[in-house]
Write a protein that binds this DNA or RNA. Structure first.
Lengths: 213, 213
DNA sequence: AGATGATTAAAACAGTAGTTTGACACGGGA
DNA sequence: TCCCGTGTCAAACTACTGTTTTAATCATCT
């Protein structure tokens, strides 16, 4: 049961299932997704899921990890940036990589879409997601905003600012179906994504400076 | 089939179903919610749903409308405010009623929670939601922000600002399960909600002023 | 070649979903 | 009193779900 897997066809089957599972879970969510559709898309037998992943829930967790790896490999937390950088640049870098991770048209944005569903309909997976992904990200962001805000504002204010920044990401993470219906726009070119990231950066920098005093 | 309903027991059954449906749809979402659980909570027979609402999807739409009415009756769009008011105050009013509609502990926040699920897993209901609820709200917000920003920024910048503001609402609409795990906080007292609304107002006002020039 | 263990395939299983059915209760009008 | 439409109820129906079973296939090592 998935001990070594020296057989190359196994790797092929497992990966094909993970790819198809990514598609289907993004499209329908954990509950509504069916292993039958996943297997049909992957071109494998139904029993393969239970053989390679034990059950549906385990496949979901594996898919979450698989998609996270893809997303963070393409858009790292700090792309070629030193800790000693100016806080404005660190915020800009944080925002840009985050926004691309969310808005990109491709496999790298699957993780963000799965996380979106997890927010709204939490499962056991959310605990590990918060622990491994969100809490570290929030800690990094808090340090950046604290540096930008200076010593004036208290911790609660800084925390609220972080939430305001994250909220702006969430808009584009969630509102895509609404944007499509409001403005007829469903996908973004790389330059547009960069423009959005730059807007969020400037909007937040101005706000923090204003709150500073 | 739900023509008049002069029988008072009918009204009781229909409303009990709608109340229970609100609870269950908020808790599990449309797909995962079962009519059996709804009927058990409502204390009615399973067949009552199909008798009064034809089918599950129709019950869902009715529940959405029912919850929207409750939410907007308690927190109107412009609570005792004239159009001639200063734009700062109009933004503040817009933000406050929105935030309360989202964060309140009670039946009035059910609509926001249902909409949140609808964003992530759109169904046929989203089209009518966008048309009847989101588009008018976005138009009102756009007018306020345009007035705040002056004639300098172009329409796209103003639109991005609106998205940044709405995004901050979304954070608290979505991130509650995460906030619970991050800070151990799941519910907010009225003063805290007001403080959050005030933060979002100030954060956004500073940002818009900064972008103004 | 034959044995071995990992992998795949088809079929069946048990549980649950939404929906439908047909019988029954009840209140008011002819 | 009889009838009829509205509303309620228990039970069944059909479809689909995740999972398991059993047998067949394949690559690899002796």
């Amino acid at each position: 049961m998935a001990i070594g897997g020296r057989n190359y066809t196994t790797q092929g089957t497992k990966e094909r299932i993970l790819e198809a599972a990514g598609e289907v879970f993004v499209a329908h969510g954990f509950q509504s997704a069916t292993v039958r559709e996943i297997c049909r898309k992957a071109g494998v037998n139904i029993a393969a899921v239970n053989y390679h992943f034990r059950n549906k829930e385990n496949l979901y967790l594996a898919t979450l990890r698989y998609c996270r790896e893809i997303s963070f490999k393409k858009y790292p937390v700090y792309p070629d940036m030193r800790e000693s950088e100016q806080p404005e640049e660190r915020l800009r870098s944080f925002v840009h990589s985050f926004v691309f991770r969310v808005l990109e048209e491709g496999k790298a944005s699957r993780f963000a879409k799965l996380v979106a569903k997890e927010y709204v309909q939490p499962s056991k997976a959310l605990d590990v997601l918060v622990k491994e992904t969100m809490r570290p990200a929030f800690t990094r962001l808090f340090a950046i905003v604290r540096q930008l805000a200076g010593k004036g504002p208290d911790d609660e204010t800084v925390r609220y600012c972080c939430m305001s920044i994250v909220g702006q990401f969430l808009f584009f993470l969630y509102a895509r179906p609404v944007l499509k219906r409001l403005f007829g726009k469903a996908s973004f070119k790389a330059e547009e994504i960069a423009a959005i990231a730059e807007h969020i950066t400037l909007f937040s920098l101005h706000a923090i400076r204003g709150l500073k005093g």
